[in-house]
């Protein structure tokens, strides 16, 4: 509308993106530099920190646990969340649908710290020892709102009259679901599951209160961070980052595909 506003807009967007991505850039760059002190100017490049990172004796356990939790979140959170979103759009009562959607968003709004301690208290009352099971429940809980939100957005544009068309042509309810609905929403479900996996890989707070003496990649990184500045953190972080970016980008591409 106003002349020159495009230029200012670009500038503003560039500044914000720089602010968001500067920390990530710093981590990636310094995972390859020789100087253990994070400062300018950069002296030389090396892959040593990656070697040091993998030499950490806790790394195999952390990787294994992170992989287990990410898989549980992807499968459990992905399927339950997709089913919930599907149930929501099928509801005829708009008010009920809106309030159920809001309620399902609560775990994303309540601070992770509060969720973490609430689960810890609950598990201790039912005498479940701290460990992977509790952490897995926490991860599914934290990923559900995001899965439901993305699936809901995707399903709102779903044309339900094609299911009626299938029923009209003789398909049973189940056949219509299997032949029509499932092939159409499968990319979105997989996308949502990948998102759940990414959230799980990155989850720290809820994990920390419930996993006990076990380790995941984020709790391992946390331990290293508490000890001080260690360039091998940059190496682990960069690898984690690469994995997260792959998952989220893949999730986005799958969700964007038109039915």
């Amino acid at each position: 509308m106003v002349r020159g506003s495009r230029l200012w807009s670009w500038l503003f967007v560039a500044l914000v993106l720089f602010y968001l991505y500067a920390p990530i850039l710093v981590i990636v760059v310094f995972s390859f530099t020789t100087s253990p002190r994070l400062s300018l100017p950069i002296e030389g490049l090396t892959l040593d920190w990656y070697g040091r990172a993998f030499a950490d004796p806790l790394i195999p356990m952390a990787l294994k646990n992170s992989a287990i939790l990410a898989t549980i979140s992807a499968v459990g959170g992905g399927i339950a969340g997709a089913a919930f979103a599907f149930g929501l759009v099928m509801l005829r009562n708009g008010r009920l649908r809106a309030s159920l959607l809001s309620i399902s968003m609560l775990p994303a709004i309540v601070p992770l710290l509060v969720i973490g301690i609430a689960l810890a208290v609950f598990f201790s009352t039912i005498a479940l020892p701290q460990g992977l099971i509790g952490a897995a429940i926490g991860h599914v809980l934290v990923s559900l709102p995001f899965v439901i939100l993305t699936m809901n957005a995707r399903l709102e544009s779903f044309d339900f009259s094609i299911l009626e068309a299938a029923r009209d042509l003789g398909a049973t309810r189940f056949q219509a679901f299997r032949d029509i609905t499932l092939p159409l929403i499968r990319p979105s479900v997989v996308g949502a599951a990948l998102l759940a996996a990414a959230l799980s890989l990155d989850e720290f707070v809820v994990t920390w209160f419930n996993i006990g003496s076990q380790q995941t990649v984020p709790t391992l990184v946390w331990g290293l961070m508490r000890r001080g500045i260690d360039p091998s953190i940059n190496a682990i972080a960069t690898l984690l980052l690469a994995l997260l970016v792959c998952l989220v980008v893949a999730s986005n591409l799958l969700n964007r595909r038109k039915s």
């Binding site: 981590i27 998102l195 990155d202 984020p218 972080a237 984690l240 980052l241 989220v248």
Partner: peptide, 10 residues
């Protein structure tokens, strides 16, 4: 989604 702990540390 690019590393909660990592960004704080950065």
């Amino acid at each position: 989604f690019s590393g909660y702990l990592v960004r704080i540390y950065a």
